[in-house]
Design a protein around this nucleic acid. Structure first.
Lengths: 201, 201
DNA sequence: CATAAAATGGACTGTCAAGTCCAAAACTGG
DNA sequence: CCAGTTTTGGACTTGACAGTCCATTTTATG
């Protein structure tokens, strides 16, 4: 594996960012390697130099990039779910983030295009879900510690449900273009936490 | 548009079913027209005879097929949400349906491959969501009529949240292979209905 | 400045799959 | 059985796009 010079690292990053941008704009199917090259003013040999695995490796890298972005875009609210106002503030952040993104989810697009055959693609999504759920669960535990949530609630299960609310809301937004479902589901999820109306198991 | 003879209709159906089956087995990306032809013992000219729009039209037809199947697989429970046991029974049906399907959703796969460019693809999903939500909302209204759900709850909004729970649960199952999230979200959703812990707006 | 390693340009190849075409066969209704 | 329509076979065309290759330039380092 060749060591990257500063220039090399910059080129690699340019390709990666360009690919991500093009995908966000036109979708995965409509993104060819040549498109990326044209947009980033690079050549084939460069792309294959930095991504020896070709298209697949590049898409996977984009997936990782987008996955990281998802959590970053929820900072700092996601890491600070320590009061009801904080939960609502997180809710608003999420809704706003996806509203801005418009009815399309680059991460879902990329992984669904990489498809089942690619073990790496699944891992990226699974990892993201795991981290996300863990942070939500931490928030639930904190609220339990503060006596705001019934201690009988299973934090992981509650976090799982909440995560599903977000995912479902976003998925539906992808076809309707509206965030109505996302908002309704989040509101219900948080209200449910608060009311302690979670089933025990 | 030529009128279909009995034989022609049979061939068309064979192609459609074969395409759907192949997609469920290998995914959209790994499904070429030639694959479908081989599996269904038909020829190119037949495929283009019955699906003049080619691949895109075929995929759209598959999407419609899968969309219909989604609701059908929830019968009769979905249409009969008239008591709490009925709601739980519906819940079990949904979970079981997706467990059987395994971690992959042909409908999502197809539409995400058709991508944004295709107005028809969106319409199929939007239509499905609309019908689904309407049936859930009807169930909520019925329960309100029976005095089992707080009349202050907005049935459409509650149905929207519930639908998001299902979608999110399924989406997560696509990467984890587990139905844990789906179950947690559904349990929360129904419990929330029952407890009347829905936010008013 | 010399040398090796890394970076770059871009032409070239091979493959694969969508879509076209026409002629032959089968079916329909009278 | 006949004329018209639908159905079928499968070869052929076309285009696109991933991936290869090698020559050249640039950069790092002692």
């Amino acid at each position: 594996m060749p060591t990257l010079t500063r220039k090399g690292a910059a080129t690699r990053r340019r390709i990666l960012d360009g690919a991500a941008a093009h995908i966000r704009e036109f979708g995965v199917a409509a993104t060819t390697l040549d498109d990326v090259l044209a947009r980033t003013a690079t050549s084939k040999s460069q792309l294959f130099h930095y991504f020896p695995g070709g298209r697949e490796e590049l898409l996977l890298a984009v997936a990782r990039l987008e996955a990281d972005r998802v959590l970053e875009d929820q900072r700092p609210q996601l890491g600070d779910l320590t009061s009801w106002p904080a939960w609502w503030s997180w809710r608003d952040t999420v809704v706003e983030r996806y509203r801005r993104q418009g009815g399309l989810c680059p991460l879902n697009a990329v992984t669904s295009h990489l498809g089942e055959g690619t073990p790496g693609a699944r891992a990226v999504v699974t990892g993201l879900m795991g981290r996300w759920q863990a942070e939500l669960a931490a928030g639930v535990r904190h609220m339990q510690g503060a006596g705001e949530i019934d201690p009988a609630v299973d934090p992981d299960r509650a976090a799982a449900a909440l995560l599903a609310c977000v995912q479902g809301g976003v998925l539906i937004q992808m076809s309707t273009g509206e965030t109505t479902h996302l908002e309704a589901a989040l509101d219900m999820g948080i209200a449910s936490l608060r009311a302690g109306s979670f089933p025990a198991n």
